[in-house]
Amino acid sequence: MEPKRLTIALPKGKLFTPCIRLLRRVGLPWEGLLEDTRQLVFDYETIEPSGHVTRYIVCRPTDIPTFVEYGAADLGIVGKDTIVEDNKNVFELVDLKFGYCRFVVAVPESMVESGNLPNFSQARVATKFPRVAEAFFREKGIQVEIVKLHGNIELAPRVGLSDVIVDIVSTGRTLKDNQLVAVEEIFPATARLIANRASFRIKAEIIQPLQEKMREVAEKEDLEADEDINQS
């Protein structure tokens, strides 16, 4: 019988290197993933101890929930921020603990005085995450106008496009550089292992032990630690 194939969607960008450390630590193939090619699909013919061969799809983080929901990938690794904003029907199995960031509401330094939330009534809110922003303000009973942008949200208040922004921050550096202050935290986010609903059942004998291993590694190790991955 042909071995089953396990397909994992991996995010380009800052989560990529910790992902590869994770793959290596749980004993999945990772050779060649770090080479600077434009290759997007990686197939490994080696049959793993649990009897499967592995394929990786490397894609934009925001597309990962889609690949997984449709079953083009069985598993995916992606930030909680993307999962929440995308609202796709996928299973969320493991908190991988890396890629920490927070959703915050931020205002220009000059506005901090009046920065308590009720004063934002009818304010214009620029964000890459309209669903998160909308839900947050609706729950607080504050009416705002959401402006969707695709990047560099911090620019919006400076040029008068919005009064407030909702964005993800990790160190807070970008906010500071742009004279913005976080006045409210919405929720924190880290990278998660997500699974397709059908794969989770049909490939349970592969996915179940793998998610256990990933949980253990994520509990114990700092996958963002600055080590040269090619050495060990």
Partner: peptide, 9 residues
Amino acid sequence: TRKDLVGLE
């Protein structure tokens, strides 16, 4: 229901 095991924990 959503199998959000992280959220559950």
